[in-house]
């Protein structure tokens, strides 16, 4: 595969704003003349279910779906959803995942019936992912989003973190311009703040384990 290609598998729970992320990245690509395609999920699965978007950047890529073991990175807006799609990660690929867990209702019911069970934790997810890669970064996106001024900007916090990767091909300026064009006018400032705070967080949790941009 060409070295200028970058595929990121984005996952989360319905309602977390994954589609906005792919739109921000794709529009930024269009503005600077980089080829990008996505495979998205709309419809039934959005109802608080597990969702995913395949985001693929590169001149020769035609398939909207990332092959198994083909993702340079997994960007998970919810921690369990990073583990759910682990087969898509390239060996040694990067996982950037939110610290937040939304307990699936099925797990809660099991929990109600059996007092001995505990929810799967972020630490557990991280430990399991570490069996296939040594590059797992956890970002407390909800806290950071609140600090930025709106808890709904978790997705942009995570994008900010991802964008620090050296292999991430979209220039920051284009990305920020695209954020400004794709979010509601009154939410531009808070989203740009969320992006910067996400970047900052990555310097502490991500850039010590993987090569980042200067």
């Amino acid at each position: 595969m060409a070295s200028d290609e970058f595929s990121v598998y984005m996952s989360g729970v319905g309602g977390q704003g994954l589609v906005l992320l792919s739109n921000v990245m794709g529009s930024a690509c269009a503005s600077v003349g980089i080829q990008a395609i996505t495979g998205e999920q709309h419809g039934l699965s959005q109802r608080s279910g597990s969702i995913n978007i395949h985001m693929r950047i590169g001149e020769q890529i035609r398939s909207p779906l990332i092959p198994i073991a083909g993702a340079d990175a997994i960007l998970a807006l919810e921690a369990l959803e990073a583990l759910r799609y682990v087969e898509y990660l390239k060996p040694g690929g990067v996982v950037v995942m939110n610290k937040r867990i939304q307990h699936p209702i099925i797990e809660t019911i099991g929990h109600m019936k059996d007092k001995a069970t505990r929810y799967m934790s972020v630490e557990e997810v991280k430990a399991r992912l570490s069996e296939v890669t040594d590059k797992v970064a956890v970002v407390d996106a909800l806290e950071i989003a609140k600090k930025a001024g709106n808890p709904l900007t978790e997705n942009i916090v995570m994008l900010g973190a991802l964008s620090t990767l050296e292999a991430f091909p979209i220039p920051e300026e284009a990305l920020k311009k695209s954020i400004a064009e794709n979010v509601p006018k009154k939410a531009v400032d808070v989203n740009l703040r969320a992006f910067d705070l996400g970047k900052q967080a990555a310097f502490e949790t991500l850039c010590n384990i993987v090569k980042c941009k200067k």
């Binding site: 608080s48 279910g49 597990s50 369990l80 959803e81 583990l83 759910r84 099925i106 399991r128």
Partner: peptide, 10 residues
């Protein structure tokens, strides 16, 4: 790795 990971249907 996914053993015990709860499903999350819609």
């Amino acid at each position: 790795l996914k053993k015990g990971l709860s499903d999350r249907p819609p």
